[in-house]
Design a protein around this nucleic acid. Structure first.
Lengths: 337, 337
DNA sequence: AAGCAATAGTTAAACGCTTAACTCTATACC
DNA sequence: GGTATAGAGTTAAGCGTTTAACTATTGCTT
């Protein structure tokens, strides 16, 4: 492979000149610039990134980190949308995307991940920081690598969804439709930093609507479709008079939908079911899900932008991405009885 | 950050010794080995990957390449499963995963991608090579980087699903149920290298069952759920006597399901619908989809394994991953009339 | 005419690691 | 006793860039 020196020899200049011309340093005549560029073209020179990295300390690599908590982390469509937003930005700026999925062992991350962070291979890190107990970003910050957190605590630069507003929106929607007997399909407390805010939003809206949140029946799932079905079964058996199920994510809502179908309950005529996240599949269930859209693409995009600002030495503000109520076919006024 | 030299000084040996001990080169006494290891621990030394890469020519980075053909490539759950398989293997062996999504412009890849390939940053490449017209792997092979192709032509090391068998399985299933009036929801010719084999399998099974494949009504979608709904509408309008819709992927099948529901057709009692891929969502539709599972996780896993064999100087055989018929609730014998 | 700034380019050290080639025992063999 | 040989470690030359420090030329002030 041709090196800087080959280019320099061919162009009749020094390697420093070539290097500087290629990085757009000023103070070169058009003639020199062209000579160099021509030589580059002619011999098909491409810079060696490892050498550049060693010399300059910058690698052009951004790591996207999402801890491996549940089994199939890659199966979460939300993560993928975020990734797509990040990828688009990085591609534009010529950065490469490395993905790291640290295994969490008893609350601390694995050795591989630690080594990667310390290795000097990363210019920046974007972490899907939804795991409160494991401090994915700690080693990153200690090492002084620019980092932005998605959905994490605002201690560092972060971009998160306005889950409180999401909770309010979905609960208000149910109340406006006239629902009062609402079952909640939730998840274990604080498995996810966003969940608290979401629940708080739901509670606030309930309160505002004159409904006692604490007395609403609840079932605890684990985000999976199967658990959604189980929870729905359990709630509907214990409280046959429920007119709506509010689910904390779309996958569980899809499970609830399945269960309703199995029980012969028509949705939304006899039972309203709502989700949260607006994953692609939510639009294609029968009936399609009423849910909250988190603008995952935007989230990814904003996270990248913030990271690049950090890389430019700026100090961007943490950002909260607004959410949006998406009303589809799975919600309707409760049946009169 | 501490360097090799710091470790060497502290352990009272040369940098060469440290380097060799850390890479498990033989011919060192336990004493020396321990001295070095201790020093490493004490000062918290972590090797600088860029320096290592420059010096050794190996970066410990594997790129997973999937071209950006349709808009939301990351939305394809199949890709994610494959990625998960790859990630698991790479994680195990201490390799890092870089993802590259080259933009295809008029059949050729973008400059960024080309530069990345030539940059010496990659030890190996795994390409989701489902795009026949763009030779994603050409520059990789020209550069001499070990590469394996998923679903691509067997010109290089490749791992692909047995789509022919998949086609046979799904068609046989329909025939065994007693369907004869089958509509096919397909995609444009050879947009995907696997599709041909799949269609061939369907055709062969039809033939074997005494059905003329060419006379079966067909509609052309684009893999999306929406297009599946459109195709279903079109087919059912023109051929109201169809008892089954065979869809070339799950997303289109889900669209067909929606459309059937809209038309008031009960699935599977009045209309059988089958998919292909077995994406996670396929198990949670109402009714759940009968489909073909491609073992995407295994595919990813095998691809990594082959790549590591290549990296070890071996010459692995291309592999064909068997597929599996998954019978769920969306298929049943045709209604008697 | 001297001094200075701006322009245009060069030299060479440094980045942190790997590894081929080498040295220096200590043991084994004939 | 001389010569291989294997073991244990060192020396130093790269790997291909970037970049601080330097030189040299030109044009402009004063």
């Amino acid at each position: 492979m041709p090196t800087l020196e080959d280019v320099a020899r061919r162009a009749g200049v020094s390697t420093a000149t070539v290097s500087k011309v290629l990085s757009n340093t000023p103070y070169f005549t058009e003639a020199t610039r062209n000579k160099v560029l021509l030589a580059v073209k002619e011999i098909g020179y491409v810079p060696n990134l490892a050498a550049r990295a060693l010399s300059s300390g910058r690698t052009q690599i951004i790591a996207v980190v999402f801890p491996y908590v549940y089994d199939a982390i890659f199966a979460d469509p939300r993560i993928l949308c975020v990734l797509e937003g990040i990828d688009a930005e990085c591609n534009l700026r010529g950065y490469n995307l490395l993905i790291s999925t640290p295994r969490l062992i008893e609350g601390s991350v694995d050795e591989n991940y630690l080594q990667l962070i310390q290795s000097g291979y990363l210019d920046g890190v974007i972490a899907l920081n939804h795991v409160p107990f494991a401090s994915i970003l700690d080693p990153v910050i200690k090492k002084g690598i620019p980092a932005v957190s998605i959905g994490g605590p605002p201690s560092v630069c972060s971009v998160s969804s306005d889950h409180h507003a999401g909770g309010v929106l979905i609960m208000e929607h149910l109340l406006e439709l006239g629902h009062q007997r609402i079952g909640i399909i939730t998840v274990p407390d604080s498995i996810n930093t966003g969940t608290e805010q979401l629940l708080q939003g739901i509670q606030d809206a309930a309160q505002a609507g004159g409904l006692d949140f604490n007395s609403l029946p609840k079932a605890v799932g684990d985000y999976s479709t199967a658990s959604g079905a189980d929870c729905a079964a359990q709630l509907l058996q214990q409280h046959p008079d429920l007119t709506a199920l509010l689910c904390l994510n779309d996958r569980m809502a899809m499970g609830a939908l399945q269960e309703a179908h199995r029980l012969g309950l028509r949705v939304p005529e006899q039972l309203t079911i709502t989700g949260y996240d607006d994953i692609p599949a939510a639009a294609t269930t029968v009936p399609p899900l009423t849910t909250i859209n988190q603008r995952s693409l935007t989230t990814g995009y904003e996270a990248s932008r913030m990271l690049f600002e950090l890389l430019n030495g700026q100090k961007p503000e943490s950002k909260i991405i607004p959410v949006e109520l998406v009303v589809r076919g799975s919600s309707a006024p409760p049946a009169r009885r």
